[in-house]
Amino acid sequence: MSRYRHGLGLAGLLGAAVAYELVVRALFSPLHVPPLTAIAPEAVRLLGEARFWTATGRTLLAAVVGLAIALAAGVVLGFAIGSVPGLLRVTSSTLDFLRPVPSIVLIPVLILVLDVKEITVLLVAVSCFWIVLFQVLYGVREVDQVAVDTARSFRLGRLARIVHVTWPTVLPYLGTALRLIVSVALALALTGGLVMGTAGLGEMIWSSQESGEVTGMYALVLLTGGIGVAVDLLARLAERRLLHWHVATRREVAA
């Protein structure tokens, strides 16, 4: 059954590639939309070039640094707001107001005072921070009161309760957050390159568009999607490792 499904998936990919090839050859000029048979060799050629890997490294570095900042800030603030009674009630309207504010409004404000590399990291950090913070807050809210009372009757201190009761409850929510934020981080690291010319993949894509290397740009976009898939896979693996003890993961393995 599984092999059958994979076969269909492969057929779907091939079908889409053939359909793209036919439509593009029939309707578009290769100067605007190159066919896949031109993009794929170009992508392979790029994979052998150092400048592609330098750009990818820079983009991933910005994404990772931003992610780390967001995780640290989100976890600390989330635990602080979630464990002090009343603080959530006072801050919730402010948090609700700030969260939907699109992080890219920061670009025009910050570009006057910071350099583009720092702004890109900050863009990633701010966007991911909200996701982490709200996941932690959901998690803290779900802590089992009986478990807390049990820990208390065993005379566990505040810190020990956080480590042994709250943290394991929040961890699955953090796993979800991790899965969500990796693609957000990649998207914003790329956006920084597109909009401000921060060195990296986004900038490389934009400059090949401006210099008219259309096939090269399509190849870069194709590879960017591949990087996205790889990063997403890594996040899922990390989530599974982090939660190997959790019921949902164990059931998945058993099935």
């Binding site: 578009f28 605007h32 939309v33 693609s183 990649l186 998207a187 790329l190 956006t191 597109l194 986004g202 894509i205 934009w206 568009q209 259309v214 740009m217 399509y218 976009v221 960017t224 999607g225 996205g228 898939v229 990063v231 997403d232």
Partner: peptide
């Protein structure tokens, strides 16, 4: 997982 902003230069050309 393909970030939407990356499609901007593609569509710009196409």
């Amino acid at each position: 997982v393909l970030p939407a902003p990356v499609m901007i230069p593609v569509l710009l050309v196409a």
